[in-house]
Design a protein around this nucleic acid. Structure first.
Lengths: 228, 228
DNA sequence: GTGCTTATTATGCGGTCGCATAATAGCATG
DNA sequence: CATGCTATTATGCGACCGCATAATAAGCAC
């Protein structure tokens, strides 16, 4: 094989660490979305990335750190996809929220593969400190985004005052629940209905239909009474 | 060891199939709640039950059928725990719904082990026809329960008419979302707040705060128009 | 008791897993 | 063109996996 000596192509390419890390993250997401929890495997992920197993332990502290990085990557992407359209609406807070809902229930957000991936993350949260850390940061961003939108709504004239924090809990729960059901059983209802239910919820919030969420004027401390 | 000949205890006991099946289901639930998806293992489950691996394939068509049976067992138990208190309230539909919420967010329903188990079921749904079948039946029962409660509410004087089916979708999504968040992060809010949010949602529904859920009087067929 | 049914166990096989360790080679630097 | 750093591969090891198959024995009918 004398001829190949000169044109011998390298047996592997040496990539800058950051690029390699991105490749591994992409491969991880591909495995998780295709195989679910069975995709969490050093062998599978490295094969998907077209590299050898050792690279994972070399570029990450371990498989858990890699999965956590993948979680962060996907979560940031999804958040950006929902937040972008919402923040693009400058005026009416109701429309901004509607844009957020529409983007959150767009087809690409309802891809079953994403749900499969998410289940893996959820099931790893209790056992993986790295994943829990990432999740806390991602959660904080998501909360901040939703609370910002709700705060805009609250400042709108004619809107009954409400507790932003508590409202965010309810709204994100409603959205998550709708997303889960739609992911598990796409035929159970239309995405448009999910959006309408979220819009309705916001409407109820704005019109003061939720007694427990109303921001009541607090009495001065010395006048507070505790029911017994 | 002549002595032991007479008192030789049996090497195993022969159980009636139904009882053995229950034991295996219990062992399965124990493994799933303790180990999550790693608990789905013929070896682990049979060890947990104190029997040999072969028994699983003997009493069930396979591991998938066993897991499906475990899903059904747990789901029925949880449903009964929530439905019982709700149906025990004969009078006020609002109180019946409140009882349903209270039971659904009681400590035993928020056990992290249950969530871990549930994640396994969810992630198996796409791949296991048996599990999907069971899930459809369980879902139908849950839907029926909630819709019955909502129908009672709808018949209450003074309550604005609404679409029961659509309302059920929203309410169960809200409940599921709250349950997921609480299971993932028990310290993010109090169970009592989850109950209050559900009560609020029902209050909004009853007072007609949800435009898209209002049961509008339908125009006669020949007068229907489709917007373009 | 005796025998039959079948619930139950024991064992082996091929495969994949994570991990550790040693060898290799790309590539920048001089 | 030589050299060193380190990204990368290759390989072996022990453990666990699901599955299949043959052997065993519990307990009921007679």
């Amino acid at each position: 094989m004398r001829r190949s000596d000169a044109a011998a192509e390298p047996k592997f390419r040496r990539a800058p660490p950051d690029a390699r890390r991105e490749e591994l993250i992409a491969a991880t997401l591909a495995c998780l979305s295709r195989l679910g929890h069975e995709g969490v495997s050093v062998r599978r992920i490295s094969a998907e990335a077209g590299v050898s197993m050792g690279l994972i332990t070399h570029h990450f502290l371990g498989i858990d750190a890699l999965v956590a990085a993948a979680y962060e990557s996907l979560a940031e992407r999804l958040l950006a996809q929902s937040r972008g359209p919402a923040l693009a609406v400058a005026g009416d807070p109701l429309e901004a929220l509607h844009a957020y809902f529409s983007a959150s229930f767009a087809p690409r957000a309802l891809d079953p593969a994403i749900f499969r991936t998410w289940l893996v993350f959820w099931s790893l949260v209790p056992h993986s400190p790295e994943l829990r850390t990432v999740r806390e940061r991602v959660d904080r961003e998501t909360r901040a985004t939703l609370e910002a939108l709700l705060s805009r709504l609250k400042r709108m004239p004619g809107v009954r005052p409400f507790k932003v924090g508590a409202a965010r809990i309810g709204l994100s729960a409603l959205m998550d629940g709708l997303w889960v059901e739609l992911s598990l059983n796409p035929s159970s209802f239309e995405p448009a209905q999910a959006i309408a239910l979220c819009d309705d919820w916001v409407h109820g919030l704005a019109t003061g239909a939720f007694p427990a969420l109303l921001a009541l004027r607090r009495a001065p401390l010395h006048r507070r009474r505790r029911r017994r």
